Amino acid sequence: MTVIWGVVNTTPDSFSDGGKFLDPDAALQHAQELCRDGAAVIDVGGESTRPGARRVPAPEEQQRVIPVITALAAEGIPVSVDTLNASTAQAAVVAGARIVNDVSGGLADPDMLAVVAASGADIVLGHWRGPSNDMYAQAHYERIARDVAQELRQRISAAAAAGIAPARIIVDPGIGFAKTPEQNWELLRGLGEIMALGPRVMLGTSRKRLFEPIVGTGASQERKDAATAITSALAARAGVWAVRVHDVRATRDALSIVAAWDGR
């Protein structure tokens, strides 16, 4: 069954829950709740990657995420660190993180792939065409699923060249990153081209802008979470290894319903 990743943002400016979990104790309690709801991995991030977000100095990012990762790892909870910085990735693995989730696929920090290779952690290679402050300027594709697959293939090759074994590589098509809502839907329809690359695939649609033309720009988080659960269930049916979400319970229920429908 598809694995559910629960999101914990220790940031003041995340697009969905900015500021709610800046306090390490609040972040830890939220992570524990996500685990009770069915999360198999907790993805801890200290820097927002929403459109227009500013970069955060690595020391500040580490002050936000390392206490939370340390506490979660001490409880035996599998942890991923969501970071663009190699130094933060290294510190997070030392603190107990098992996976590095780099939305840039190793492009933002030239040291990232070598650091992950030496650490023994798994890595998520996201599809990325540039920083969040101008990502939509890069939203030009001939055929988006094919183009994204080709660019992810290059990142897979770079990771392998750095010494990261294929079994440690996960790919993420980067829904919302340098992609318009229409392009995101086209990419989801072509998800098979991403699956064909070989590594495990993680998908993150949670509360993203692709839903706004459907549920409305001012729609509540509850409506976006319902939309997320539906896309996660469809992704699971397509064979995606993991989905990254904010509302774990709704997604868990959706995946369980699809599994029951399919007789699994």
Score class of each variant (00 low, 15 high):
E186S: 12
I156R: 07
A145S: 07
L34E: 09
L210M: 15
R36M: 05
T205E: 07
R223H: 10
A242V: 02
E186K: 14
A73D: 10
Q183W: 08
G176Y: 03
S16F: 09
R146N: 03
I230V: 15
A39Y: 05
P57L: 12
I169S: 05
A178E: 10
G45H: 11
P166M: 05
P199K: 11
R249H: 10
I214N: 07
T228M: 04
A117V: 06
T2W: 10
A74S: 15
I214D: 06
V68H: 04
D225Y: 04
L72T: 10
Q221G: 14
Q63C: 09
E60V: 15
H246F: 06
G18M: 08
P51N: 03
Q32V: 07
R200P: 01
A121H: 13
E186P: 00
D262M: 02
I257E: 04
D43I: 06
A260K: 14
D37F: 01
R249M: 03
D262I: 00
E151G: 01
R54Y: 00
T228Y: 07
A97K: 02
Q221A: 13
L187G: 08
H246P: 04
L234M: 14
V44M: 05
I175K: 02
P57C: 03
A158I: 03
I66K: 05
H140M: 06
D43K: 01
A114K: 15
T70F: 00
